[in-house]
Amino acid sequence: MTATSTSIRGREIPDRLVPGWKRALKSWETLLFVVAVAIFIANSLASPYFLDPWNLSDASFNFTEKAIIAFAMAMLIIAGEIDLSVAAIIALASTAMGMAMTAGAPVPVLVLIGLATGLICGAFNGFLVAGLGLPSIVVTIGTMSLFRGLAYIVLGDGAFTGYPDAFGWFGQGYVWWVFSFELVLFVVMAIVFGILLHATDFGRRVYVIGNNATAARFSGVRVDRIRFILFLLTGLMSGIAAICLTSRLGSTRPSIATGFELEVVTMVVLGGVNILGGSGSIPGVVIAALVMGLVTFGLGLLNVPGIVMSIIIGALLISVIALPRLWKMART
């Protein structure tokens, strides 16, 4: 689309020049998808254990919890904000559930407490950012310390263990065949967030705010309300992730989910979401989650230690953003 083609006037202006499918083909998501397929093939060639459905299902646990937070984080980052406190919310929500469990609360109450803690933490972030107008990056660095700090005050170097067996279903149970609850949750959330971001008024306004919050306000968009809701959503997703993770581990330590926030942000950025806001998509984040999961699993099968995988993830993050820029520089 060049400036020279802008001569069509009035009624004759077409809706679209490039059909949606054609644009999708040239998109970041397609490139990422090709990468994912390539990794998938490479993995299946490298290890005979890779293509086993149960192994693949097991491997999904290493990204599902982060991915469901990443969906909400993607919307938050598209709107021009960020939440670095998500892992700390997991810690606090898990601690709250542990306290309730110790007091003898039944499983449904545990779940409600996990969700409520997430929502309260999200509301607190949202109030500080949208209500008081403070910059989200430092606010959530602060609440990250605060939320996890509260978990440390409760637990010290101790832990809550002995969750009821029924509670274990969220992190260890299967809905049908190899499809675990977490995997199903991941798929459902991908669809829900995909619709929310791409097919609703709300999602449209999220993009508008991320592109130009001032113009959004000058167009009648209630910018702060939407920002608040996004923090609430991110808190809620962190609460859900806390339920799954606590259930899967069967215990709560204050150091639970340490470093998750950076992996979640990496997943979002790798998925093509602009860290400065304004663009990105849920399908991109889904594929990025799969890529990260496949890399981790594949290297795990080859006995490559976790920390080396993190080098690869870090290098992937920088190179996927640097390479197009380098290419552009080389061309001009």
């Binding site: 500080l128 430092v138 606010v139 660095i141 602060g142 609440t143 990250m144 310390s145 605060l146 939320f147 996890r148 700090g149 509260l150 440390y152 005050i153 637990l155 010290g156 170097d157 204050p254």
Partner: peptide
């Protein structure tokens, strides 16, 4: 263990 929470509040 209260240190982390206190520094969080100080930041805010």
């Amino acid at each position: 263990f209260a240190q982390m929470a206190i520094s969080g509040i100080a930041i805010l």
